[in-house]
Design a protein around this nucleic acid. Structure first.
Length: 891
DNA sequence: CTATAGCCTG
DNA sequence: CAGGCTATAG
């Protein structure tokens, strides 16, 4: 059988003859007993022929020939991507990124922080100013101050965050600041002094500054922002943080963008990016100019300083707002695109709610933040409040150690700042709290910027993923995400499947809180926006996606089942246990959000009713995409065995899975798994032996579609874990005991036919997957076997064995021990003598081949395989019994 | 086209 | 041991 190897040989053929084969066989001693048995010498004949072959190794191209394989690969990649993104996002929204940013900022700022914090440093107003300037210069915006603060040492952002986050005026600030931070004392004084004037002057200063630096650009912004409702300001501030460096100055653009974003125009989105680029650069220039100009003035009086600061801050805020708006626009555009593409359905829902919901729909957590922003300030406000509280709690400990925490706080602060807007800022600036504020502000800005970036990235990722999968269903999650930050309640409702627990998580949203809250939390977990819940979500996510692709049956299964069922699966359980139940529960903790009525299933989802009832159709999958989902031959399994007529009940997993799935095949397979497991397994253990029942879950081996098969394959292991007993019950999967049995069978047969396997594993429901898995097992056994043979043969050669006859394989031979360890670890099975013979023959074959130098031929082992495959002996009847292990081992 | 063997990799 | 890939036989 010429393999590719042969071909390679042909191509390269260098015909060289091996005259000599290397080793002298003079030495007789080997580990192996020297039995002169020449039983199979005849076998060796084949080797005698001279072969010309080079060792040429042909690299096998990976061209994926299999369509399925390719698809799966693509899906995997997509999933992986999504996962990776998600993962990155998960912990804390972009903690790493944020941390990096913070570091960078810190580095830029250098010792600025220390200066601020240092009690003495601030004493001179000038010093402070400089410090700020430095910060500002580095960051160009308000961020700078924050930067200075953030990095550092454990300043007490907590107090600042809490106090500042909220509008609470100076009083609170003052109290907190001094107590916690001695640093700012000097600044405090300045602040106090300035406070009086500040407010009064604020407007004036702003005007002045504007006129000075940016006359044209700035003005419009200021006017717009000021006039605009608080909401906008808040938003803008949030936005500004993200955008801060770049755009701040381009007011006109920003404002315009704002409007658009609010209006939710899709069209605007397209334009936005372009604007951004140009705007940004301009903005930076302006700012720097401002700062430079300002510095001298500020030094003269603090009022000026204060004013300038305030102005800067405001400007920054505005800019940030603008940026945020832009971002929102972009997000909206993306979302809209998605919607357009995927959802006819989603639109319906959207109509009901806010225009922004579209975003929400996108389940990917990534969108969640964006959606939040874009959706509405309202949500944000809510979140802010929450965040602020959270932050406070965190801050109180005064632990800045974790950057992540800092980030969280920052976010919260940002929210708070938004609310506070100008007033809060002014006060903050005045107070010694300045430091704190700055930190907060810087943190906020950073956080916002980070968020935006994250959002963008996420949105992109989501888009890509979605496109790739063509699984539009994501939308729901976003919505959740938005609310999620709030106590989970509303989020759950968002899910399309009303009662259904959130299905697989869509891609996890970036914002940790939102997602978790939305997804996992909604189910049964805490509604808290607190980060803690992330845990679950993260795990689940991983399982969902990662597993989806690679069916690690247990984990995926458990995770999925848990989700599906709505039953809160413990985080830890990755394993099968969870199999549990699930299915019908539909809703577990789920989304039952009172607030949100369960969205009706879209008609588009064909199977939707079923899915909904099942709960399988995860809300995430709303989009019914008819997409190619493949022709999943779901029915096929049913068909053959007559599963067809199930009632639409929960059992229809199959249907549900296909319908809902836009996901990749894997995902589908998972679902199928889930369904099958949940429905069939969990509920009933079938005791039917070979008779396959028509039960929906069980698929006749023949009928199974690939997808099903795959799913089942995944199930196999799960099943095995679940029901380790190879006993009477027919198992859908192969258990460890089956593996053990197979290993013992290997002592008799190295090349069992698939029919033989079916006969000997009668307690297993055979489907392609199982069959192939069993075959694979034996293939693996052989692989190990031959590796050992080659290894020992070479060893013997090295030891000076000259003739294969000198080697014999006995029960005490190392070779045998090695083999026995693998196939009969417990050594509780008496290896048949025949196996020793075969092993000996094999060893000799290898020895001779190697000695003959045939190993230069890439396919040199094939000849040996041919010999060995003929040596299979019949497997004892006992192995046909499902309980053979017990019987065999007992003996 | 499917099933399988073999090889490789994780 | 599982997965993937290739090559091959039927």
């Amino acid at each position: 059988m010429p393999d590719h190897d042969s071909t390679s040989l042909l191509t390269r053929q260098t015909k060289r003859r091996r005259v000599d084969i290397g080793v002298k066989r003079t030495v007789g001693s080997t580990i192996f007993g020297r039995s002169r048995e020449t039983l199979l010498d005849s076998m060796n004949q084949s080797h005698c022929i001279d072969q010309d072959g080079d060792c040429s190794l042909v690299a096998h191209g990976h061209g994926s020939t299999n369509v399925d394989g390719e698809k799966s690969n693509v899906l995997r990649k997509l999933l992986k991507r999504a996962n990776s993104y998600e993962d990155a996002m998960m912990p804390f929204p972009g903690a790493t990124i944020i941390s990096q940013l913070l570091k960078n900022n810190i580095g830029k700022n250098g010792g600025s922080d220390s200066g601020f914090q240092g009690s003495g440093a601030l004493s001179s107003g000038g010093s402070e100013i400089q410090a700020e300037d430095a910060c500002s210069n580095s960051s160009h915006d308000r961020d700078s101050p924050s930067d200075c603060l953030s990095p550092g040492p454990p300043h007490a952002p907590p107090s600042s965050s809490s106090s500042f986050g909220r509008p609470p005026p100076a009083s609170s600030l003052n109290t907190h600041a001094p107590s916690q931070q001695p640093l700012a004392l000097s600044s405090f004084d300045l602040d106090r002094l300035s406070d009086e004037h500040l407010r009064a002057k604020r407007a004036r200063v702003e005007n002045i500054i504007r006129g000075m630096s940016h006359s044209p650009l700035v003005r419009p912004n200021a006017g717009d922002h000021n006039q605009e409702s608080n909401r906008e300001n808040e938003n803008s501030s949030n936005n500004s943080s993200s955008s801060n460096d770049h755009r701040g100055d381009v007011n006109s653009h920003n404002t315009s963008s704002h409007n658009h974003s609010r209006s939710d125009r899709p069209s605007s989105l397209l334009s936005s990016p372009g604007l951004r680029g140009g705007v940004v650069s301009v903005g930076e220039v302006y700012r720097e100019n401002k700062r430079k100009q300002r510095l001298p003035q500020q030094q003269h009086s603090f009022t000026q300083l204060v004013c300038s600061r305030q102005e800067q801050r405001q400007e920054e805020r505005r800019q940030l707002k603008l940026q945020l708006e832009d971002m929102q626009k972009q997000l909206r555009q993306l979302q809209e695109k998605f919607y357009q593409i995927y959802d006819s359905e989603t639109e319906e829902e959207e109509d009901n709610g806010e225009p922004d919901r579209g975003r929400e729909r996108e389940e990917d957590g990534n969108l969640s933040e964006d959606s939040i922003r874009s959706d509405g300030l309202e949500e944000r406000h809510r979140d802010r409040g929450r965040h602020s509280h959270d932050d406070l709690s965190e801050l109180d400990p005064g632990l800045f150690l974790d950057r992540a925490r800092a980030l969280l706080r920052e976010q919260a602060l940002i929210d708070g700042e938004l609310e506070e807007d100008v007033d809060g800022r002014e006060q903050e600036e005045r107070n010694g709290a300045k430091v704190v504020k700055r930190r907060g502000a810087g943190g906020r800005q950073l956080a916002e910027t980070l968020k935006q970036e994250l959002n963008c990235a996420v949105s992109q990722v989501v888009d890509t993923v979605v496109k790739g999968f063509s699984s539009p269903k994501q939308a729901v999650s976003n919505h959740r995400g938005c609310h999620s930050s709030t106590p989970a309640a509303p989020s759950s409702s968002s899910n399309s499947s009303s009662s259904c627990p959130p299905p697989f998580g869509p891609l996890p949203s970036l914002t940790p809180d939102s997602r978790f809250g939305g997804g996992a939390l909604t189910l049964s977990l805490n509604g808290d926006g607190s980060p803690t819940p992330n845990y679950h979500s993260s795990n689940q996510r991983l399982h969902c996606f990662g597993d989806v692709i690679v069916p690690s049956p247990l984990d995926s299964f458990g995770g999925l089942s848990g989700r599906l069922s709505g039953i809160p699966t413990p985080n830890d359980q990755t394993e099968a246990l969870p199999l549990v139940v699930r299915k019908s529960s539909g809703g577990g903790g789920e989304n039952t959000n009172p607030s949100l009525p369960p969205p009706p299933h879209h008609p588009s989802l064909h199977p939707s009713p079923l899915t909904a009832s099942l709960g399988f159709s995860p809300p995430s999958f709303r989009h019914p995409f008819p997409l190619p989902l493949m022709g999943y031959p779901f029915q096929s399994p049913l068909g053959p065995h007559g599963g067809h007529g199930y009632p639409p009940g929960p059992k229809d997993h199959h249907r549900s899975s296909p319908d809902s799935m836009d996901m990749t095949r894997e995902s589908i397979s998972l679902r199928t798994k889930m369904a099958s497991l949940g429905g069939g397994h969990l509920s009933h253990h079938h005791h039917h032996h070979h008779h396959r029942q028509s039960s929906p879950n069980q698929h006749g081996p023949e009928g199974l579609s690939l997808s099903l098969i795959k799913s089942e394959c995944g199930d196999l292991q799960d099943m095995s874990d679940i029901s380790p007993y190879s006993g009477n019950t027919i198992q859908e999967g192969l258990s460890p005991n089956h593996l053990k049995k197979a290993k013992l069978m290997f002592f008799y047969t190295r090349y069992p036919s698939s029919n033989m396997l079916k006969i000997f594993f009668s307690d297993v429901k055979f489907n392609r997957c199982i069959t192939s898995q069993l075959i694979k097992w034996f293939s693996n056994f052989r692989e190990f076997y031959y590796i050992q043979m080659e290894k020992f043969a070479r060893q013997a050669i090295n030891e000076g064995v000259t003739a294969s006859e000198e080697m014999s394989v006995g029960r005490d031979a190392e070779l045998f021990r090695a083999l026995n360890m693998h196939y009969n670890k417990a050594n509780d099975f008496e290896v048949p003598e025949r196996f020793l013979e075969v092993a000996q023959v094999t060893l000799r074959e290898f020895f001779n081949a190697i000695v003959a130098g045939k190993d230069a031929d890439p396919s040199w082992k094939k000849a040996i395989y041919k010999v060995i495959c003929k040596l299979d002996s019949e497997v004892p009847e006992v192995f046909k019994s499902p309980n053979c292990l017990q019987e065999l081992l007992h003996d």
